[in-house]
Simulated scan of single mutants.
Amino acid sequence: MENAFPQLNQRLHNRRFIVANNSQGLSGSDTVFHYLVEDRAITGTYQGGRIRTGHQVGRVTGPDTIELLYHCITTDGEILAGWSRGTVGADQAGRTTLHFVWGWLSGATGGGESNYVELVE
Score class of each variant (00 low, 15 high):
residue 2 E to N: 08
residue 2 E to W: 06
residue 5 F to D: 08
residue 6 P to N: 06
residue 6 P to D: 07
residue 7 Q to G: 05
residue 7 Q to P: 02
residue 9 N to A: 14
residue 10 Q to H: 11
residue 10 Q to W: 09
residue 12 L to W: 02
residue 12 L to S: 02
residue 19 V to G: 04
residue 19 V to A: 00
residue 20 A to G: 12
residue 21 N to L: 13
residue 25 G to R: 05
residue 25 G to T: 08
residue 26 L to M: 15
residue 29 S to D: 14
residue 36 L to S: 13
residue 37 V to E: 00
residue 37 V to Q: 02
residue 37 V to T: 06
residue 38 E to H: 08
residue 42 I to Y: 01
residue 43 T to G: 11
residue 43 T to L: 07
residue 45 T to P: 04
residue 45 T to V: 13
residue 45 T to Q: 12
residue 47 Q to G: 03
residue 47 Q to P: 01
residue 48 G to V: 14
residue 49 G to N: 15
residue 49 G to W: 14
residue 50 R to C: 07
residue 51 I to E: 03
residue 51 I to W: 04
residue 52 R to N: 15
residue 52 R to E: 15
residue 52 R to D: 14
residue 53 T to S: 11
residue 54 G to Y: 12
residue 56 Q to W: 05
residue 56 Q to S: 09
residue 58 G to K: 01
residue 61 T to A: 07
residue 62 G to E: 07
residue 64 D to G: 04
residue 64 D to C: 08
residue 64 D to F: 06
residue 65 T to P: 01
residue 65 T to R: 05
residue 66 I to R: 01
residue 66 I to M: 10
residue 67 E to Q: 08
residue 68 L to S: 02
residue 69 L to C: 06
residue 70 Y to T: 01
residue 70 Y to G: 00
residue 71 H to C: 10
residue 71 H to L: 06
residue 72 C to I: 06
residue 72 C to Y: 13
residue 75 T to A: 13
residue 76 D to R: 03
residue 76 D to Y: 01
residue 77 G to L: 09
residue 79 I to G: 03
residue 79 I to V: 13
residue 80 L to Y: 06
residue 80 L to V: 15
residue 85 R to H: 10
residue 88 V to K: 04
residue 89 G to C: 09
residue 89 G to L: 07
residue 89 G to H: 09
residue 93 A to T: 13
residue 93 A to H: 11
residue 95 R to W: 07
residue 95 R to K: 13
residue 96 T to K: 02
residue 97 T to C: 15
residue 97 T to K: 09
residue 98 L to Q: 00
residue 99 H to C: 07
residue 100 F to T: 07
residue 100 F to H: 10
residue 102 W to N: 05
residue 102 W to G: 03
residue 104 W to Y: 15
residue 105 L to D: 12
residue 105 L to S: 12
residue 107 G to H: 13
residue 108 A to E: 15
residue 110 G to C: 05
residue 110 G to M: 11
residue 112 G to K: 14
residue 112 G to Y: 09
residue 114 S to D: 11
residue 116 Y to S: 02
residue 116 Y to R: 04
residue 116 Y to G: 05
residue 118 E to A: 07
residue 119 L to F: 09
